[in-house]
């Protein structure tokens, strides 16, 4: 099957500091990839490099193309957004931004349906800045999905979400993945989720990577990656 996302020999440097080296992997349509690793391992850096936010060396192909030609088919939920809480955007307006104005809006889901889907329908006309951390995450997820992407990138999507919200979020994510065949790439440090949701796993600890299906990577390997930094490279 043709890969939907292919990364080859990706390396990222901040000045003289090497943040990532020699990262290579591919995922196929319908995959759910979890990028795992401890804090500072380079997970978000990898995601931002793939998305073209950060400069990198190596090759990234999304739908067989450069990311610039594939942007209309991807959705992105950042780890956090540094926004002005007094910015006068309502939840409706924030989700609507995902549809764009200068791009086609024909494929967009109705904002009313999106707020129902993520469970913030009672907040649709509230100021985005007045929402709690968990509600903000949900609205950002709705914004990423409103354009009906084929490939979704989530960077630590559950920061600030309570346990109940976390459970419903995973149920929601599993449902989209099943129903819409939504290929998903999710950064997380919670490797307990792997068996529940992932079809592929990528472990990062700066220079080290491990990659494969969740069945081929046991808890011991993950613990080694997190704790001692053992070099795993499974294909």
């Amino acid at each position: 099957m043709k890969s939907i996302l292919a990364v080859k020999n990706l390396a990222v440097r901040f000045g003289d500091i090497s943040v990532l080296e020699n990262v290579s992997f591919e995922i196929e349509p319908g995959d759910f990839l979890m990028i795992l690793g401890p804090n500072g391992a380079g997970k978000s850096v990898l995601l931002k490099s793939i998305l073209g936010i950060l400069a990198y060396e190596g090759e990234v192909r999304v739908f067989g193309k450069d990311i610039k030609q594939a942007r209309s088919r991807i959705g992105y939920v950042p780890q956090y957004i540094d926004f002005d809480r007094t910015f006068p955007l309502t939840v409706r307006e924030v989700i609507g931004l995902g549809c764009g104005q200068t791009r086609s809006v024909a494929g967009c889901t109705h904002v009313g349906n999106m707020v129902k889907m993520v469970g913030v329908e009672d907040k649709i006309d509230s100021f985005f800045g007045s929402l709690s951390g968990g509600q903000i995450r949900k609205v950002l997820i709705a914004r990423a999905l409103v354009n009906r992407p084929k490939l979704l990138f989530l960077d630590e999507p559950l920061a600030g979400v309570d346990v109940v919200g976390e459970k419903s979020f995973y149920e929601m994510l599993a449902k989209w993945h099943r129903e819409f065949k939504l290929t998903t790439v999710m950064v997380s440090h919670d490797y307990g989720l792997v068996s529940k949701i992932a079809s592929k796993v990528l472990c990062l600890n700066k220079k080290m990577t491990c990659f494969g299906g969740p069945g081929s990577l046991g808890i011991r390997e993950f613990e080694l990656t997190f704790g001692k930094g053992v070099d795993l490279h499974v294909h």
Binding site: K48, L51, G52, I53, K68, R71, S72, I74, Y76, P78, I81, F83, F87, L89, E93, V94, G96, L97, G98, G100, Q101, T102, R103, L140, R143, N147, F153
Partner: peptide
């Protein structure tokens, strides 16, 4: 470019990713 400008002012990183 009204909507794009609003998106940029609100969340530049996501605006870039959106195209």
């Amino acid at each position: 470019y009204y909507k794009d400008l609003v998106f940029m002012a609100f969340d530049r990183e996501s605006a870039l990713v959106s195209g």
